[in-house]
Amino acid sequence: MKNILFLGDSLTAGYGLPVWQAYPSLIQQKLQQEGYSYHVINAGLSGDTSAGGLHRLGHWLKEPVAIFVLALGANDGLRGIPARETTQNLQQIIDKVQLHSPEAKIVLSGMEIPDIVPGRYAAEFRKLFRELAIKNNISFIPFLLEGVVGIRNLNLPDGIHPNAEGHKILANHTWAVLEGLLEK
């Protein structure tokens, strides 16, 4: 059985929900329904940044990885970490995965922060994900939270984390890209 490793933050971990409602678990269910032999590993950690993910990546690379889904950066944006630093961390994660599992297919989940953030930061932050995907010739989900962010009935009461219905949308965004990388 081939592994699909999701490295992410609270969105991947399914903050506030039972683990089976988090979008990586929904992807596992879809894989089984469609007859694919893949095992999803959810390495989501609430509050994690790109630097934190880089630090803990080695623990998750003990097993071979067929597909790697990189879903970090939201907390970098919320904390105002310079886009250059986030870019460097994400690039190092991609490099480590490629070194460990050269045949691994990589998916990058894009993040955005609201344009209400002053200055050029929001635009720089949004752009870094697309540029990394192009530079590394990897698959790309433009905005993981598209259609969920800011919609009250798709989020928990905190207004930040998707609820079970919101996670279904995240799973759909991910599946749309992931499906083309799968092998029966």
Rank of each mutant, 00 (worst) to 15 (best):
L70R: 02
N75T: 06
Q32I: 11
V40P: 09
I81H: 08
H100M: 00
S25R: 07
A22Y: 12
Q33C: 07
L72F: 09
Y38I: 01
L26V: 07
I27A: 08
S50C: 07
K62E: 15
A43L: 03
I93T: 10
T86E: 09
Q21Y: 13
P64M: 03
Q21T: 06
E63N: 12
G53S: 09
G47V: 04
K62W: 00
A66S: 15
Q98F: 00
Q21P: 00
V65D: 00
T49N: 04
Q88N: 14
L99W: 12
A43G: 13
L99I: 10
P18Q: 13
G80S: 09
Q98H: 13
E34K: 15
L31G: 10
G44V: 04
I41D: 00
P64L: 01
D95I: 02
V97A: 01
Q33V: 04
G47M: 04
G80H: 12
L61D: 10
R56F: 11
H55I: 00
L45H: 12
L17W: 11
A43Q: 02
G44R: 01
G73Y: 10
V40N: 08
V69S: 12
E34W: 03
A22F: 11
G16C: 06
S37N: 14
R84N: 09
S101G: 01
E63R: 13
Q91K: 06
L61M: 15
Q28D: 08
E85L: 14
V19L: 13
E63G: 00
K30P: 02
H100T: 08
L17R: 09
N42A: 08
N75A: 05
Q21W: 10
D48V: 06
H100F: 03
H55D: 07
E85N: 13
R79C: 08
I94Y: 06
Q29I: 07
P24A: 07
L72Y: 09
P64Y: 06
Y38A: 06
K96Q: 15
G80D: 08
V69G: 05
Q88F: 12
A51Y: 09
L90S: 04
P102T: 11
L61S: 11
A22D: 09
G77D: 08
L26Y: 11
L70I: 05
F68K: 03
I81N: 06
G44D: 06
L90V: 00
Q32S: 14
G35E: 07
H59R: 14
Q98G: 02
D95G: 01
A22I: 05
L78D: 04
L61R: 07
S101F: 01
L78S: 10
L72R: 05
G44L: 01
Y38Q: 03
S50N: 08
Q29L: 11
G52C: 08
Q92T: 12
A74P: 05
G35A: 11
Q28Y: 06
G52Y: 11
A83P: 05
V40Y: 12
W60M: 05
I41C: 03
A83W: 07
S101I: 01
H39L: 12
E63A: 14
T87S: 14
Q28M: 03
D48N: 14
